[in-house]
Simulated scan of single mutants.
Amino acid sequence: MGNEKILENKRAKRTKLYDAAYDLFTSNGVHNTVIDDIVKSAGVAKGTFYLYCKDKYDLMDKIILKKSAAVLGSAMEAVEKERTEHLLGFQQCVAFFVDYLLDYFKDDTKLLELIYKNLTYELYEKMMNYEELDSARNAFISNFIDTGVNNQTARYRLYIIVSMVGAVCYNSLVLKVPYQIDAVKPELYRAIKQIIT
């Protein structure tokens, strides 16, 4: 029983740390946030910070991975439900998936901005290998392979779609240039359709 309480306490501290950092990163920016601000806001000791993270950029990566996995996981659950209820094909599933993300990020532009501004290739690779995203990644790649491309080409196509959707969302929803998302959405879907066929 004592070990469970210790683990629960550690999880609670880590959650406080992640939540405080997320709030500070999205309101002040990553570069304008210092570790002292994070631990003060979280109500934890500085040593607790270093127990979970090397530095604030490591913490930012962990937050992006965790939040991205949650968003993509919920999107994949919605896609799977829609696919089974309405017998959607792969192209329809991809369109539904992208639509889900667009709707989500319309309501949470702060998360979109944090992800887009800080998504490096290394972080993208970590995200694509994140255990919680295995089913989503494998579904996309296997469907790409079914169209006659090899595994590497399937990975390239997934990367292009993720990058394109991220850029369009960031520009349209955060910067609000050069077009509103609803105006450009049909062209975004047309471009994605060309990539996946």
Rank of each mutant, 00 (worst) to 15 (best):
F105A: 08
Y116L: 05
I64V: 05
E80K: 04
L119I: 04
Q91C: 08
D146S: 13
Q92V: 01
D61G: 12
S163T: 09
K185W: 14
L123S: 06
K56P: 02
V184N: 06
D58H: 11
D99M: 09
A70N: 12
Y121M: 13
S172M: 01
N151D: 15
V149L: 06
I161V: 04
K110C: 09
V79W: 00
L59Q: 05
Y57E: 11
S74V: 01
D108V: 10
T147L: 12
C169S: 06
L158W: 05
I145A: 08
D103T: 05
D182I: 02
V174K: 00
R83I: 11
T153V: 14
R155I: 10
F105N: 04
Q91E: 15
G166I: 00
A69G: 10
R155A: 11
R157L: 02
P186F: 07
R155Y: 10
L59V: 07
A136N: 10
Q91I: 09
I161E: 00
D61M: 02
S74P: 00
C93H: 09
K56D: 08
D99E: 15
D103E: 15
L133F: 04
L175R: 14
M164H: 08
I115C: 03
S142I: 14
L114E: 03
K126W: 00
V149R: 08
K62V: 02
D58K: 03
K81R: 12
V184P: 04
K56C: 07
E77A: 06
Y57M: 08
A139D: 12
E77H: 10
Y57L: 10
T147Q: 15
V71H: 05
Y104F: 12
G148W: 15
T84S: 15
D103W: 13
Y100H: 06
Y52T: 07
N171V: 00
Y159M: 12
V177E: 15
D103P: 02
D55N: 15
F140M: 12
K66H: 13
N138H: 12
A183C: 03
R83E: 14
S68V: 03
Y179L: 12
A69V: 14
D58A: 11
S172G: 05
F90V: 11
Q92K: 09
V79I: 13
L133M: 13
K56H: 04
V79N: 01
M127I: 06
M76F: 14
R137D: 05
G166V: 04
Y104H: 09
A95N: 14
V162K: 08
Q92L: 07
Q152C: 01
C53M: 12
D58L: 10
V174I: 02
L173Y: 06
A95W: 11
A167S: 10
K62F: 07
L123Y: 07
M128A: 14
K62W: 10
K126L: 13
L112E: 00
L123K: 04
M60T: 02
V174Q: 03
C53I: 00
Y124R: 08
L102P: 04
V149P: 06
